[in-house]
């Protein structure tokens, strides 16, 4: 998937210090390739969410730079999935999913087919007119992913999207996400604090240290896709988990 080796995001010597003096990350350099699936793994509160928000240009960096090579270098080409589904409670599912296109002032006739396609992709057809509160946590998260994908982004950023879900829903959504990634041919940056989730999903895992975050390991997971339950039970998977786990621990000073 990442064979193209053309960089999509280039982070160069980036640092972010908040007004209160807290440094989220510093001296951080990283290249994310077009079409790749990269996980950013780190202990809680290490600044990985801030890094993700900086990549999305929702917050600036204090020094260094973050550069994109998106098609039009605009916002349209980034999809963002938050920790919570972050749906508008007053709007139906279809209005929520089509929000990015409505904000771009696309005519309704152009939105409808894309919206229906997205809802089908995340297995939510038939729930068009449901309100968020009428859906389960997993369904809301799938709607949130559909909304992020509707602009057909070159880059999909996910900030611990499945952390609040139960194990079974989480594994199902992991598989769904992989299927979507392979079909959509977008790049994914996935922030998580779960070693197992990151190994299962990623081509590459960036392990961050405690705050101020720096990269302690950059591990490639050389296992073919599609990955299945079999991969989860393989010795190879266990080895990777051990390796990533060790790297994660090396970044914590207890």
């Amino acid at each position: 998937m990442g064979d193209a080796q053309s960089p999509l995001v280039t982070i160069d010597q980036a640092a972010k210090t908040f007004e209160g003096g807290v440094t989220a990350f510093e001296n951080l350099s990283l290249t994310i390739d077009r079409g790749s699936f990269t996980s950013i793994l780190g202990p809680s509160g290490c600044g990985k969410s801030t890094l993700l928000r900086a990549i999305a240009n929702l917050t600036g960096v204090t020094s260094g730079s973050i550069g994109w090579k998106l098609e039009d270098n605009g916002h349209d080409s980034i999809g963002f999935v938050f920790q919570e589904p972050t749906l508008m409670p007053w709007a139906t599912l279809q209005r929520n999913v089509s929000l990015p296109l409505e904000l771009a002032r696309l005519p309704a006739a152009a939105i409808a087919p894309k919206r229906d396609h997205m809802l089908a992709l995340v297995d939510l057809s038939g729930f068009e007119n449901a309100y968020p509160r009428e859906l389960s946590g997993g369904m809301k998260m799938r709607a949130s992913i559909a909304r992020a994908l509707i602009t057909d982004p070159a880059l999909l950023l996910l900030d611990e999207p499945f952390a609040a879900l139960d194990e079974i829903t989480r594994e199902k959504l992991n598989d769904d996400l992989l299927a979507i990634w392979q079909r959509q041919a977008c790049s994914v940056v996935f922030v998580t604090h779960s070693v197992y989730e990151s190994v299962y999903l990623s081509e590459r895992i960036i392990v961050l240290s405690e705050r101020p975050a720096r990269i302690v390991a950059d591990i490639s997971i050389d296992a073919p896709y599609p990955r299945t339950q079999e991969f989860r039970l393989s010795p190879q998977y266990a080895d990777y988990c051990r390796q990533v786990s060790q790297a994660l621990r090396s970044g914590i000073s207890i």
């Binding site: 929702l58 605009g74 916002h75 349209d76 938050f82 919570e84 972050t86 508008m88 929000l99």
Partner: peptide, 22 residues
């Protein structure tokens, strides 16, 4: 919701859109 505000920002929503839709 601050996350919804950021979402609107991400998609380049105008002040009018933020007011009327959020």
């Amino acid at each position: 919701d601050p996350n919804l505000r950021e979402l609107f920002q991400l998609y380049g929503a105008s002040r009018w859109q933020v007011l009327t839709r959020l």
